[in-house]
Lab assay of single mutants.
Amino acid sequence: TYYTVKSGDTANKIAAQYGVSVANLRSWNGISGDLIFVGQKLIVKKG
């Protein structure tokens, strides 16, 4: 599943929404920190 980042989103918020850990969200998308951008497409695997 892909999720498009919206204004006000955070890695924590997206992870919680899908029931996954922030560490997994980072791993699936090659993100090292919490910096995400509006319009960015993230791979999300439901927990």
Rank of each mutant, 00 (worst) to 15 (best):
S27P: 02
T10E: 05
L35V: 13
Q40Y: 05
T4M: 09
Y3R: 01
V44E: 01
V38W: 04
A15Q: 02
I14R: 00
S27H: 13
L25N: 01
T4Q: 07
Y3K: 00
I43Y: 09
Y3P: 01
W28T: 02
I43M: 10
A11K: 03
N29K: 00
N12W: 14
N12Y: 15
I36T: 04
V22L: 13
N12I: 15
I31E: 05
R26C: 14
G19M: 08
G47P: 15
Q17E: 12
G39E: 03
W28H: 02
K45I: 11
A23R: 08
A23Y: 08
Q17A: 13
K41F: 07
K45W: 13
V38C: 08
G30N: 15
D9K: 01
K6Q: 13
D34I: 08
G8R: 03
Y3T: 03
G30L: 08
F37N: 08
A16N: 10
L25W: 00
D34G: 08
F37Y: 14
Y3V: 07
T4D: 05
V38F: 05
I43P: 01
S32A: 12
L35R: 12
G39C: 06
W28G: 01
G8F: 05
V5C: 07
V20M: 09
L25F: 04
S32M: 12
G33V: 09
S32I: 15
V44N: 00
V22R: 03
S27Q: 14
A23I: 09
S27I: 13
A11W: 15
K46S: 11
L35N: 14
K45F: 14
D34C: 10
I14F: 02
G33A: 09
I36F: 09
Y3G: 01
R26G: 06
A23H: 11
S21A: 07
N24R: 08
V20D: 02
V38Y: 04
R26I: 15
L25M: 04
I36E: 02
K46H: 12
D34V: 08
K46G: 12
V38P: 11
K41Y: 07
I14Q: 00
N12R: 13
W28N: 02
S21M: 05
I36C: 06
A15C: 08
L25E: 00
Y18S: 05
A11H: 07
G30C: 11
V22C: 07
N29P: 01
T1I: 15
K13F: 09
G30Q: 11
N29H: 01
N12K: 14
K6I: 09
A23N: 10
A16Q: 12
I43T: 07
I31G: 04
R26K: 14
L35Q: 14
N29E: 01
V5Y: 02
K6A: 08
L42S: 00
R26L: 15
T10N: 07
K46A: 13
V44Y: 03
G19I: 04
T10F: 03
S32T: 14
S27V: 12
N24Q: 15
R26T: 11
Y2T: 09
Y18K: 03
A16W: 09
S7K: 14
F37P: 08
T10A: 03
L35A: 13
I31S: 04
G19R: 07
V20K: 00
Q40W: 05
Q40D: 06
A23F: 08
N24G: 06
T4S: 07
G30D: 12
